[in-house]
Design a protein around this nucleic acid. Structure first.
Length: 904
DNA sequence: GAGCACTGC
């Protein structure tokens, strides 16, 4: 390729672009056309280049498949995409302005009575914002696609989104080439390997695997018979009707409609109702509407419905507002973190469970609600569990409050027993039957078994996509490699197998791939973590392979250490996984364990989160709700957490100064409770007032609370990614300061997406960090801490951090291991840390987690005298004397290096 | 020289 020509062309393009911008800003209508033409031209060129490269990379068999008509369609779609680009950019600007406006006004209006005009204006802006935000989501997509059940109405738009994401890579000629080249290399390698014994494999042993696994059909989960023709007929008649009629009909078709009157009677007669019904019965969307129709919203009171996830709250609210024919945010609204889409008019409010918990702080009796519905209660999130206890109490105090707990079948009895006068209410119906298979004998290696089963399904079963559950990113990557190799070895005699990995840390652009429709004649296999169990739904899955494991975080209250280990799943989890195959038609589930171990070895339910987590935050919330310490230990949990966990939490809060000697909430504690963060982070922020560096500290707090998914290192570019990461660690400043550096550099780049790509940083995580940081700025104001910057004094920043995290310290021992200063526990600095090879003598860590070893994650070097200065009641001079007595050259990490030199 | 499952405020 002639690079000089290319570059000259790009100069021309740039010039044109500049001119365009100039003219566009003066509102030239013609420019639009001009721009369109220009982009189309560019697009065609790119497309041509890409097609050439693709042709090089593709084996003949696949080339044959793509026909001219398909390509034309592609080009048309691509043109459309580029035409939209300009408009999108302007919309994005507008969106940002609106967002700022709305945010300003939010704070402005808080606690102030709004005049009607102001209010209307505000709501109007908000409406526009919501529409734009939704568009942004569809175009760029930094959220998961909304599960299929609630976006029928916009099916067309979503198709657009699917294609636009899929084609994004075509807009970046380099990425396309690189990818194609890689594919080419891989295929070259596999084809060579395959062709050597291709004949043998294809002709003699075609679909016979040495390690064949015998699966036996054990049972069929009951369900209605699937009548294909009836479905098609229904589909056709549905299309004919007008949209509103369709919605009305749709509502009547839901299983819950059949029991509407019976349900309303039951609500009337009982205060607490446990609703049992499978997903898809329509309870989430219909029940609040029925209640509204029956007059439960009359006296200005609202119906609340909690969801465990943000997307669910948003999409359900959108759907219901559509069904009721009102604007989203008016009568029907939702409330999630960073976004309150409700108004004075709102009577049906969908919200995340954590949000309702926050509302308890403001109104402990929930006076503004007449009905509270806790949806998906069987998921037993931390927030729902606390809500149960609180709601049970409120229900006693307020006989007029109706409580609805909705759950899947398995543990309904438990809910009924917990709310003593609860009445059970069942909604019949389950979408499609699922055939369940177990292995005949126990499999020694679930991973290999999973690979073989996948291939077995692919070669022997009728069309339909496969969903395979694995435990983590690494396992998914290896599985992808193995599958590619083995499919390659089988040659062209079998249908194409498209492999789609999905896990939460995967960049959104790649995640979108799983939602692309499977081409005819091919089969898709989705390799997923637990994310596919509840959080997202993939259309077209017919087969589920369940090896029976997942990674689970748990907290050991004895040692106070967290762990993240591969654990067998529960029966409930297994049922949930199986159910993923029966969403759009009858399905099959292959379990890679025996029916015996399902019956005898597996727990009925997954241990609820409240029993396997650090409770510091929970305890602080409960105490700030006014629950006395004695009552705290008698608090009615459905499954009480271990006593030690509660004790540890109280102890930590005392050490942090949130509770005083009488275990009463202090002023510091009250301020800490304002923050939606772990108490140690909250304390760190409050301490930053003293060190005049609150600006830096909230950036660090935001970055830390995003979690560890900031850096992204793809397997094939590990070296580059590692180098990029180490740039932020210059001077061995420690991981906390490194996080600050990342945030600040990103800010300097004007929050650029490109900058993130160049530095192997996840855009999504950074955006989230910014959201959190913005929220923290608002909260600082509320508790009257000034926003001050002190960026040159790293010691001041580190001292603030120490004020929150002083219990988490460790000192260097021989062989590079670390001994916790105040605990009988050793650990290692995590290799991803910037200090992993520096070995400072005394470090402060953000968390200690057991995985393959005990690892300290996010560490920073601190000075021993700080501990005595900041936490004199926690540390004795004895604890750190050996650190300050030894005369060793300090600074620049060299001291540490020599100390740890003998380890490797 | 290892890996952060997944949510939520």
């Amino acid at each position: 390729m002639d690079f000089r020509k290319r570059s000259r062309k790009s100069v021309q393009v740039e010039e044109k672009e500049r001119e365009f911008k100039r003219r566009a800003s003066s509102g030239d209508e013609e420019m639009l056309k001009d721009q369109r033409e220009k982009e189309e031209l560019e697009q065609r060129l790119r497309e041509r280049d890409a097609a050439r490269t693709r042709k090089l990379a593709e084996p003949k068999a696949i080339q044959r498949k793509s026909n001219a008509a398909e390509e034309n369609k592609d080009i048309r779609a691509l043109r459309e995409v580029s035409r939209q680009k300009y408009l999108k950019k302007r919309e994005e600007q507008k969106l940002q302005e609106l967002r700022d406006d709305i945010e300003d006004e939010h704070y402005l209006f808080e606690g102030v009575k709004r005049s009607d005009v102001e209010y209307r204006d505000f709501m109007h802006k908000k409406d526009i914002y919501n529409v734009l935000a939704k568009k942004e989501l569809e175009n760029g997509g930094h959220e998961y696609r909304i599960p299929e059940a609630y976006d029928d109405q916009q099916a067309g738009v979503n198709q657009e989104k699917r294609f636009s994401v899929a084609r994004q890579r075509y807009n970046d000629p380099n990425a396309e080439k690189e990818e194609a080249w890689e594919e080419h290399q891989i295929r070259k390698a596999t084809l060579k390997f395959g062709s050597k014994d291709k004949r043998q494999v294809c002709d003699d042993y075609q679909f016979v695997f040495e390690d064949q696994i015998d699966l036996i059909k054990a049972s069929v989960m009951d369900g209605v018979k699937f009548d294909y023709e009836k479905e098609v007929a229904l589909e056709k008649s549905r299309a004919k009707r007008s949209a509103l009629d369709a919605i009305r009909e749709e509502r009547k078709k839901l299983p819950v409609y059949a029991v509407r009157d019976k349900f309303l009677q039951a609500v009337h007669d009982h205060q607490v109702l446990v609703i049992v019904g499978e997903t898809g019965s329509g309870k989430t969307t219909q029940i609040p509407q029925y209640l509204h129709e029956a007059g439960y919203t009359k006296h200005g009171k609202m119906i609340a419905c909690t969801q465990p996830r943000r997307v669910a709250a948003m999409s359900v609210a959108a759907r219901v507002s559509q069904e009721m024919g009102v604007k989203l945010g008016h009568e029907v609204g939702y409330s999630i973190r960073f976004e309150d889409c409700t108004s004075k008019k709102t009577i049906v409010k969908y919200m995340t469970d954590g949000m309702l918990l926050r509302e308890f702080l403001a109104q402990p009796e929930l006076d503004s609600y007449s009905v509270v519905m806790v949806d998906e209660a069987h998921e037993r999130t931390l927030s729902t569990d606390i809500l149960f206890g609180l709601l049970k109490d409120v229900a006693r105090a307020r006989p007029d409050l109706k409580l609805l707990i909705s759950s899947a079948t398995l543990d309904a009895e438990k809910f009924i027993n917990f709310f003593d006068h609860a009445q059970k209410f069942e909604i019949p119906g389950r979408p499609y039957p699922v055939e369940i298979h177990f292995t005949e004998k126990a499999e020694a290696n679930y991973f290999d078994a999973a690979i073989v089963t996948t291939l077995q399904i692919h070669t022997t079963q009728p069309p339909g996509d496969i969903l395979l559950f694995l435990t983590g990113q690494e396992e998914i990557e290896t599985a992808e490699e193995h599958l590619k190799l083995r499919v390659g070895a089988l040659g062209t005699k079998i249908a194409e197998l498209i492999i789609c990995p999905i896990y939460a840390n995967l960049p959104t652009e790649i995640q979108a791939k799983i939602f692309e429709p499977t081409p005819k004649g091919a089969r898709k296999v989705v390799l997923a973590t637990n994310i596919a169990e509840t959080s997202l739904t993939i259309d077209g899955i017919k087969y589920v392979i369940d090896p029976g494991f997942c990674k689970m975080k748990s907290y050991n209250p004895r040692t106070g250490m967290e762990s993240l280990l591969v654990t067998p799943i529960s029966k409930a989890s297994a049922m949930q996984r199986a159910g993923r195959s029966g969403r759009t038609g009858p399905g099959k589930c292959f379990r890679l364990y025996t029916s015996y171990s399902f019956q005898n070895d597996m727990e009925d339910n997954t241990t609820p989160e409240i029993q396997r987590t650090n409770l510091a935050n929970v305890v602080l919330t409960l105490i700030s709700l006014g629950i006395e310490i004695e009552k705290l230990f008698q608090f009615e949990f459905m499954d009480p957490p271990p006593l030690d966990a509660l004790k540890n939490a109280v102890e930590l809060l005392c050490n942090l100064g949130a509770l005083n000697g009488h275990v009463k909430l202090t002023k510091v504690g009250r301020r800490m409770a304002e923050f939606p963060l772990d108490p140690m982070l909250s304390k760190m922020i409050i301490a930053s007032e003293k060190y005049k560096c609150s600006d830096e500290i909230i950036s660090i707090a935001a970055m830390l609370s995003v979690g560890g998914s900031i850096f992204y290192s793809p397997k094939n570019k590990k070296v580059h990614a590692d180098n990029a990461r180490m740039n932020f660690h210059t001077g061995n400043v420690g991981d906390h300061i490194a996080h600050l550096n990342v945030y600040n550099s990103w800010k300097e780049s004007n929050y650029s997406r490109q900058w993130c790509y160049e530095n192997y940083i996840q855009v999504r995580s950074m955006k989230r960090a910014k959201d959190i940081r913005d929220q923290l700025v608002g909260l600082l104001e509320r508790i009257e801490i000034e926003l001050t910057s002190n960026s040159n004094d790293l010691d001041a920043i580190k001292k603030s951090i120490t004020s929150g995290f002083f219990p988490n310290t460790a000192k260097l021992q021989k062989y590079g291991t670390y001994q916790m200063v105040k605990r009988l526990q050793t650990g290692h600095i995590h290799p991803s840390s910037g200090l992993a090879e520096v070995f400072p003598r005394l470090v402060l860590y953000h968390e200690l987690v057991l995985t393959t070893k005990e690892y300290l994650r996010q560490v920073t070097e601190i000075k021993p005298e700080w501990l005595l200065e900041i936490a004199p009641n926690f540390y004795n001079p004895k604890d750190v004397e050996d650190l300050s007595s030894k005369k060793m050259p300090r600074g620049s990490g060299l001291a540490g290096k020599s100390a740890g030199a003998g380890t490797s």
